[in-house]
Simulated assay, not measured.
Amino acid sequence: MRNRMFAVVALACILVGCGGCSTQGVARQFADELGEVALSAPPTGATYYLQVDNARVIEDAAGDVDMPYCYDLPAWSEDGAETSVVFRTARKLRDGAYLRFDAALLRGMISWEEVGYDELPDAVREVM
């Protein structure tokens, strides 16, 4: 039991000591792959909005044959704070469409749906 406890404490010390060195690298990786929303969204999730811009889509069939379209777009929280989101789709989305999506910390976009302009919060309409 004493050896097990020592091993756990030693492992924790190593992880904490090394964690500071790589924290920025891991954070940058999540931001590059999922957008800044993956770092700014609460762990329990939040709602965000964006407008589709097909001029900013990259078709990359070599990366994921089921989801070959990669979007990297600005997005806004319900209070109008700007962030970015990166997500993949199976097809190009309707250019100019407004999307409401849920995102969570380290997961990025979880789900999305197209909405009308009148469904956007006032704070989002002001900055979009």
Rank of each mutant, 00 (worst) to 15 (best):
G80D: 07
M109D: 06
Y49R: 07
V85L: 03
Q24N: 15
A104W: 01
I58C: 05
D122W: 05
V86N: 07
A97R: 03
K92L: 14
A12L: 15
A97N: 03
T89M: 06
D122R: 05
W112N: 08
T44Y: 13
D64A: 08
A103D: 07
N54C: 02
D118R: 14
A90W: 09
T47C: 04
E78I: 13
V52S: 01
E78K: 13
R4K: 15
F101P: 09
A31Y: 04
G25I: 09
T23Q: 15
T23H: 14
A61L: 06
E119H: 03
E82M: 07
D79R: 11
A62C: 07
N54M: 05
V85A: 06
G116D: 14
C70L: 13
D122P: 00
A38N: 06
R88E: 11
R94E: 15
Y98A: 05
V37L: 05
G19C: 11
Q24L: 12
R2Q: 14
L99D: 09
N54F: 04
P68N: 04
P68I: 03
A41M: 00
L39M: 15
V37W: 04
E119L: 02
G80N: 04
G20C: 01
V52A: 01
P68Y: 05
M67S: 08
Y71D: 04
P121F: 01
G35M: 04
